[in-house]
Simulated scan of single mutants.
Amino acid sequence: MIDADITIRRAGFALEAAFTTDGGITALFGRSGSGKTTILNAVAGLLRPDRGHIRLNGDTLFDAAGRVFLRPHRRHVGLVFQDAQLFPHLTARQNLTYGRFFNRTAGERLDFDMVVGVLGIGALLGRRPGALSGGEKQRVAIGRALLASPRLLLMDEPLAALDTARKLEILPLIERVRDEMKVPILYVSHAVEEVARLAARVVVLEDGRVARVGPPQDVLAPAPGPVSNQRFDTVSLLQARVRAYDERYGLSTLDHPAGPISIPGRAGAPGSPVRVVVRGSDVSLAMKRPGSVSIRTMLSASVRAIASDDGPVARVDLTLAGGDALSAFVTRHAVDELGLGAGDNVLAMIKAASIDAR
């Protein structure tokens, strides 16, 4: 667990942040320049705050009053950056084993073969970085950090330099590190879908201050401000379970109290829980079930509130059967034409193709 309360002042920027974590993945989320990477560097020991403290599992890494500042190599944390930063003259295997130089004790080592297996990099071990794709390099970088057996893994925008296909390749691997290796992660990102999918706890930063802290379904709810600015940044999280996989069409069906959810790909074994991330711009509304339509997912919901301004778009906040919250962005014209108002029962329709099972 991290317990941090720090102040850092630099030319033109001031950071004052206090937060705690409880294991799993904690995301530092916010726009560029909000202070996310500054906090990560302070936890890693790459910069020294002006005041406050940082503790990891009860051990003091930094305390201004007590004049404690552990050097990075004594903190036993692993670092993964946007750029994999592999040694170009070493093979993937040699890059991986380099991490073991920073291992605390032989008794605490993560098994090499297990790490290689979880990350799916067995076939890459003999190659040098120049022969690896961006996603492959990032897998090796994660493996190198893990083989140092860190008490905490720090990930600074690890997917930012990757294209969509490579991001979808790495995301499940980060989840496996979280779930199978039980390594706590402090994860920096400004990508709302990454944070919604991965994090158990989110620390939202705005201009060097902690604006909100909590679970993603609460913290990532629409914030005050012009509705038109929220359209592509608002996501909702739905909790469902896998019902079945259709081999013929390559679709998984998920059970949700509001109705079945259809998504491409294999979502997991029957009965396993799934967190579904839905963008508000991917939700359409209907007052009754339409006849011929390509959309497979139609969820029973009631309108909780409608927000709009002078722009063309309105946000309709819904409560799904079962209690999950879902936001939909539609035109103000559509709201008026449908006569939508608080308390109305509607169908929330979500295109399967807008969700990726990975």
Rank of each mutant, 00 (worst) to 15 (best):
I2Y: 01
D3H: 12
T20M: 07
G24D: 07
I25Y: 00
N41Q: 12
G58F: 05
G66I: 09
R67Q: 14
V68M: 05
F69T: 06
F69R: 02
H73V: 08
H73S: 07
V77F: 08
F81W: 13
Q82C: 13
T105G: 09
T105Q: 10
V115T: 13
G120K: 13
L124I: 09
L125S: 06
L147C: 01
A148Q: 10
P150W: 13
L153H: 05
L154W: 02
M155G: 02
D163Q: 07
D179S: 15
I185K: 07
H190Q: 01
V192N: 05
V192Q: 09
E193K: 13
E194L: 10
A199F: 07
D207H: 13
P216H: 09
Q217M: 08
S228E: 14
N229F: 14
R231C: 09
D233R: 15
A240D: 09
R243W: 03
D255V: 14
P260H: 10
I263V: 15
A269Q: 12
P273V: 13
R275H: 08
R279D: 04
M287S: 13
K288R: 15
P290C: 13
S294M: 07
I295K: 10
G322M: 00
V330D: 00
D336E: 02
G341A: 11
A342T: 08
G343S: 01
V346N: 00
A348D: 00
A352S: 15
